[in-house]
Design a protein around this nucleic acid. Sequence first.
DNA 1: TATTTTTTTGAATAATTTTAAAAGATTTAA
DNA 2: TTAAATCTTTTAAAATTATTCAAAAAAATA
Lengths: 220, 220
Amino acid sequence: MTDILIVEDNQELAELLKDFLEAEQYTVKVADTGERALALYLEKGAKLVVLDIMLPGMDGFAVCQKIRATDNTPILIVSAKIGKEDKLNGLLLGADDYIEKPYDIDLLLAKINGIFRRRYDTGQLVEGEIILDKQAHQLFVHGQEVDVTAKEWELLLLLMENKGKTLSKEMLFHKVWGFDSFSEPQTLTVHIKWLRQKIEADAKAPEHIKTIWGVGYRFE
Amino acid sequence: MTDILIVEDNQELAELLKDFLEAEQYTVKVADTGERALALYLEKGAKLVVLDIMLPGMDGFAVCQKIRATDNTPILIVSAKIGKEDKLNGLLLGADDYIEKPYDIDLLLAKINGIFRRRYDTGQLVEGEIILDKQAHQLFVHGQEVDVTAKEWELLLLLMENKGKTLSKEMLFHKVWGFDSFSEPQTLTVHIKWLRQKIEADAKAPEHIKTIWGVGYRFE
DNA sequence: TATTTTTTTGAATAATTTTAAAAGATTTAA
DNA sequence: TTAAATCTTTTAAAATTATTCAAAAAAATA
């Protein structure tokens, strides 16, 4: 969901970008030639391709064209030699945006964030059959709306926003009930139980809300 | 109400624009020649025509002229070769705005939003049988005028302007009664009740103003 | 002042949250 | 390997909290 493929022949610059974007929670793969970029793209895919135009061998425009022949994944063209013709060239080939080298790294991030927001941020959290609409404050399971209480909603939101990560019971309790809550720790597990009954096919064998013994819970 | 006709001979670019604008809640039709654009326009109409000047066969200016001969639908001219003469040309033919290729997609969106706001924002909010006329300060349900009090009006306006989003009771209360209000929180729910009696077919089973337990209300 | 509109109140109702106790799992240590 | 200890889940009832409703009081307006 946050996979970026960087196509850049300057290894140092590529590493720098990778580190920077990873710090911003993106998942980054790097390719140093057009050929390798295409191979990597076809094998692993990506949600955004950041594409340098000047590459040894197959140039960026060719890569752009080949990717567009496959699908509609957004492409951000990066280049030192963007003239009007190049911009037009890229636009005609289906690139989504441009940035000129040398660029401000924050501007690059802004453009990347913008592309992700426009293309992928629907205001919804989707995990398989479970859809959480944050704006509407609605939960759908298999397309059916399911009523959840305020506490259940907060718990599920926390778990889904941190899917794959195990959250400790203390952390969950503090975030949902507040640090000053005097409630008993069972309260949390009872709410987990209600949630499981609402979102799991079989609440006895949960597929999504996993128990991590002695630690807490993890959404998968 | 949000129909856009894009006239663009580059199919890839046209598809890209279509996807982008559809993500922004517009309804998009595409034509790749001037002749097809006119035929589509005369058959289905549109609220805005985004018109590339450089087209094979009948060029953009000719399309512009023919559309203007029919009605006053706004036209946004897009072209790489906008010189002073072209701008003047387009203006004389009745185009509403221009954008030069290659353009920033956000700028295009801003211009489109601007045209729609200027041309079509009638100051009315319409949701099925409910019409809120902001200028006249009147509410109609099933074509019948319904009197609402000042507080009810503000409440309904807030809800309808944010339809689909759940608004918290605190937010509603603050916006309608002001941050410094000392009133009891029930006051809000009582007003919601009056509103429901005025706009809902069955106030006991509201179709429009939904209660989100422990959170607030949502207009649908 | 009379009328309309808004706000408050308190009781009834509905829904959620908490609790406590028992049962079920998993881990630890003998 | 087994028993004990620890942790988690279930259950149902109790407690709490939120919402609705109707009527009355207060405030604003004509």
